[in-house]
Design a protein around this nucleic acid. Structure first.
Length: 297
DNA sequence: AACATTTGACCACA
DNA sequence: TGTGGTCAAATGTT
């Protein structure tokens, strides 16, 4: 009963948050419709007005879901696979962590900013001595362009709001080239391109984290990036960054605060502000992660 | 129809 | 032999 009450409370809070997000997105879209094309450059392969429209669609679907099923955020469902001798698939088990904890609610997988690199999840594995599973992603251009870039994402045990993201291999699909030309006049984007366009230690040393992603969301690299660039055999490289996504204003325990990187570009600031409202669950991490992922290529 | 995620099985490696 | 990374069938979403 108490559970039902708290579930209802959470649902109404989620509904309110999504509603606020929708209002913000609608305002953003209206602003962008009045802006001339040169002031709204494409980010991550999307025009900002397209981005705003996408946000609206996501909000509408989220609101529909919240109203439709009494508050539960349903992810994609999987029916019981047929149990025949030819099919090895055992019976379906609900998605529960090894620790017995529930998986974070997936609000809307596809409601994320595209960074020019598209990742496709190809596996998930429970890792020994870890409460949380590790998720495996590959570049969607693996087969058509032979791009061998992959990444692994795992929630931190010490701090569930922290995710460890490891990047393997280089993108050979060329999809990131456009990103480097976006924001040439933007201080932050320059830093990011300078730091991540090369794997050399000298450029990495100017890694600009931590930076603020709006008022309520912070993304921080918890360790110097150069310490996490692990060379691999065959010229392959691995980059790993710890990402912390928090919805609270208060700084996380054990993390020293430092100066935020200012955003010289109003477009980028507008984009970052967009993240404020969608700051819960796994989906919010995906959004942030996708953004950070640009930097790491 | 195309493309996405899910998830147990398979396989390589230490 | 245990563990982690990948595969691929089933199934959901657009």
């Amino acid at each position: 009963m108490a559970l039902a009450a708290s579930t209802g409370q959470a649902a109404s809070m989620a509904f309110e948050l999504v509603s606020r997000g929708r209002e913000s997105a609608a305002a953003l879209e209206a602003l962008l419709q009045g802006a001339s094309a040169p002031t709204a450059p494409p980010y991550f392969g999307l025009q900002l007005n397209e981005l705003a429209a996408q946000i609206l669609r996501c909000c509408d679907r989220a609101l529909d879901a919240l109203q439709g099923d009494g508050g539960g955020c349903q992810g994609r469902k999987r029916r019981l696979p047929p149990c025949t001798a030819a099919q090895r698939k055992p019976e379906f088990r609900p998605r529960v962590l090894a620790s017995g904890a529930e998986m974070p609610t997936r609000v809307e997988e596809r409601c994320m900013v595209q960074d020019g690199f598209l990742w496709r999840k190809y596996g998930q594995k429970d890792i020994q001595n870890s409460k949380y599973p590790r998720e495996y992603f590959r570049c969607t251009n693996k087969y058509d362009k032979g791009c061998m870039a992959t990444r692994q994402v795992q929630q931190s045990e010490d701090d569930p709001s922290l995710y460890n993201v490891a990047y393997f291999g280089d993108h050979t699909c060329g999809k990131g080239a456009a990103i480097a030309t976006v924001g040439d006049d933007d201080e932050v984007m320059k830093l990011l391109v300078n730091n991540f366009g090369s794997s050399s230690a000298s450029s990495v040393s100017r890694f600009p984290w931590p930076s603020s992603f709006g008022d309520n969301v912070k993304c921080e690299a918890l360790q110097p990036l150069q310490a996490l660039c692990l060379p691999e055999e065959g010229g392959d490289h691995r980059e790993k960054v710890c990402i912390k996504v928090e919805s609270a204003i208060a700084p996380p325990v054990g993390l020293s605060s430092s100066a935020d990187v200012s955003c010289a570009s109003p477009e980028l600031e507008a984009l970052l502000r967009y993240f404020n409202w969608d700051c819960f669950g796994e989906s919010s991490f995906d959004i942030i992660n996708e953004f950070i992922n640009i930097d790491l290529q």
